[in-house]
Design a protein around this nucleic acid. Structure first.
Length: 270
DNA sequence: ATGTCCACCTGCTGGC
DNA sequence: TGCCAGCAGGTGGACA
């Protein structure tokens, strides 16, 4: 589930049990996820105290008093479980705190990742170097987006999924934002009028904020072993709704672009 | 440089 | 019941 809102919700849940806590046990249960775990992960994290947590795009950040930052990505199927009944066969990283909480990073498909960087050099992390602006920050504006799309022929949908253009959107929220803005997913990025980009930027900010809000409303679930993510899926306008009625009365379409489903309304998105 | 596609994994669902 | 194809929220790298 992890696009920006899900990672933000995850970080908020982790913050409640990790911030200010000393890590008494850190154990990787296999050698790698998408990449190898840092060989010195346990050595550097075990015994350290978590000073704060943060997020950059779809990455979660766990800062310690040793000047290290653990950077995690949840891939397609990753999630943190808090005090689960059992670690489970996909529980690949286990962290325990002095406060008595056990955290398990669970990721069946193993597209996620865990890295360790020096906190004062987080910006140099390979995933962050060419990354675009945070969509919820003020510096993400229609002007900035227009500049990034200038002269580009690729479909707007593909461009919004490109983390170098704007960082944190995934397949769901791109589909939703394009629908809210009334823009056809296949339209060339460089050929969208500024006024429509204004609308798109507003839609992106709105859909992300609403999703975080919905995740936040069920935040307490993270304290449970079988905690699930939020309920924003109930608010999807087009994603996963092929064949259903759009608000305009037309029918939501699905098509596949480079292996990813695109949901849209051909009538209200032009 | 830009655009496009695929591999990397496991689990689940729906059709036969 | 069982099998198999198709699908899933991401992204780095290989290609033209």
């Amino acid at each position: 589930m992890p696009e920006l809102p899900e990672v933000e919700t995850t970080v908020r849940g982790l913050r409640q049990v990790l911030e200010g806590q000393r890590l008494t046990h850190v154990e990787a249960r296999r050698a790698d996820l998408r990449w190898p775990f840092p060989v010195d992960l346990r050595q550097r994290m075990q015994g350290a105290t978590v000073t704060s947590l943060g997020r950059r795009a779809k990455y979660g950040l766990i800062h310690t008093d040793r000047g290290d930052t653990m950077v995690f990505h949840l891939g397609m199927s990753g999630r943190w479980r808090i005090d689960p009944d059992e670690i489970g066969k996909h529980g690949h990283l286990v962290v325990e705190t002095a406060g008595g909480t056990q955290l398990v990073l669970d990721d069946p498909r193993r597209f996620g990742s865990v890295d360790l960087v020096r906190t004062d050099a987080v910006d140099l992390y390979r995933g962050f170097v060419r990354m675009g602006p945070e969509p919820l920050e003020d510096q993400f504006t229609a002007r900035v987006l227009a500049k990034a799309l200038e002269g580009r022929a690729a479909p707007i949908k593909a461009m919004l999924l490109d983390q170098r253009i704007v960082a944190g959107l995934g397949n769901i929220y791109v589909c939703e934002a394009l629908n809210m803005a009334g823009i056809a997913p296949g339209r060339a990025g460089g050929q969208i009028a500024t006024a429509r980009l204004e609308k798109l930027v507003v839609a992106i900010k709105e859909v992300l904020a609403a999703a975080i809000e919905a995740g936040g409303s069920t935040l307490r679930d993270y304290a449970r072993p079988d905690g699930e993510l939020g309920y924003f899926f109930k608010q999807w306008r087009v994603y996963g709704r092929e064949g259903e009625a759009c608000v305009c009365g037309s029918v939501v379409q699905r098509r596949v672009d480079s292996g990813r489903s695109t949901f849209y309304c051909a009538k209200c998105q032009r």
